[in-house]
């Protein structure tokens, strides 16, 4: 349903998106994960027909977002980051207006259906200005689904909601995602992990990784790094000792008493490490593979990017203006 190929977006000299490619299929909820300013919103705005790409192609339901912008917009439901609400309209009036503008037949009926869908039918005649934050978010979602779109693009849909409201909204999104293609962005990892069939991790305009949450975890574990917590000597001493263990390539010390040990390819050094710690009379508090949570994966991936960026940066500038 969504095909993005080599999508590039430049604002003047700043490159917001650098040749990203990904796909999302029908009945799939795809999570867009990344820190602020990574290019999530830019991508979503391009897909929703808000802005044209500088280069590359993006297709929604087989239609190019630039060439067939109006047709694409008709098929997409979009909830921007700031929920777009006319505060002086009633909930139903607002949804009816949106439905009419999207050319939906029976706009009144559709508005009521959308309200029911988000569980707001009892506030149909209320002014939007009198609604709570959570309710407004739901009205925003109702706006995105009022014309029954094939593709839903939700930019940070749960931001600013209390945990209870978040749960409700997630359930709603999950339900919507059964038949539609949903692309949602978030910087909350647990949300992506919980909600999404697939995750696309993006940082500074580049796609860092994309896969199912499980497979992402697996892939990263193949890197063969271990998390070790030891109580004993000074961190320097411990690191030095651990570094001498056969098969260990490198030891990092992110915090006192915590060590990340990288093994050489294909070697399992867990037994040897435990042995060495015990030999030195230290207490082995924890020994497990590193990067089991998405949080860690994320940090891992984005810090890897840092290294590549440092070497690429000047080159990129040059290309932009050659």
């Amino acid at each position: 349903m969504i095909e993005v190929h080599n999508l590039t977006k430049r604002y003047g000299r700043f490159v917001a998106l650098d040749r990203i490619s990904f796909r999302a299929h029908q009945g799939e909820i795809v999570g867009f994960l990344g820190p602020n300013g990574a290019g999530k919103t830019t991508t979503m705005r391009i897909l929703s027909g808000y802005m044209p790409p500088t280069d590359g192609a993006a297709k929604v339901a087989g239609l190019d977002v630039f060439e067939d912008s109006l047709e694409v917009r008709r098929r997409v439901g979009y909830l921007p980051e700031t929920v777009p609400l006319y505060r002086d309209m009633t909930t139903r009036g607002y949804l009816k207006f949106v439905a009419e503008l999207r050319g939906t037949p029976h706009p009144k009926q559709r508005a009521d259906e959308a309200l029911e869908r988000v569980g707001m039918q009892d506030r149909a005649r209320s002014l939007i200005r009198s609604l709570s934050k959570g309710m407004r978010q739901r009205v925003g979602l109702a706006q995105a689904i009022v014309h029954d779109p094939q593709v839903l693009i939700l930019d940070e849909p749960t931001i600013g909601l209390d945990p209870h409201q978040v749960q409700d909204l997630r359930a709603l999104i999950r339900e919507l995602g059964r038949t539609r293609t949903v692309l949602l962005s978030t910087h909350i990892l647990s949300e992506a992990e919980q909600l999404c069939d697939r995750i696309v991790i993006i940082d500074r305009g580049h796609i860092v990784a994309q896969d199912t949450p499980d497979r992402l975890r697996e892939t990263l574990f193949q890197g063969g790094r271990l998390f070790v917590r030891v109580d004993g000597d000074t961190p320097q001493a411990v690191a030095r000792v651990l570094g001498r263990v056969r098969g260990v390539e490198k030891v990092e010390t992110p915090r006192d008493g915590e060590y990340i040990v990288r093994a050489r390819a294909g070697q399992d050094v867990r037994a040897a490490l435990a042995e060495t710690v015990v030999e030195h009379g230290w207490a082995l508090l924890e020994l497990r593979p590193w990067a089991t949570t998405l949080e860690e994966i994320f940090l891992e991936l984005t810090s890897r990017m840092d290294a590549t960026h440092a070497s690429k940066a000047p080159k990129r500038k040059g290309r932009g203006y050659a």
Binding site: R13, K317, G318, G320, Y321, A322
Partner: peptide
């Protein structure tokens, strides 16, 4: 490609 190139180009 020296460092001033992009600036002069954009100017």
């Amino acid at each position: 490609m020296n460092a001033q190139n992009p600036t002069s180009a954009s100017l």
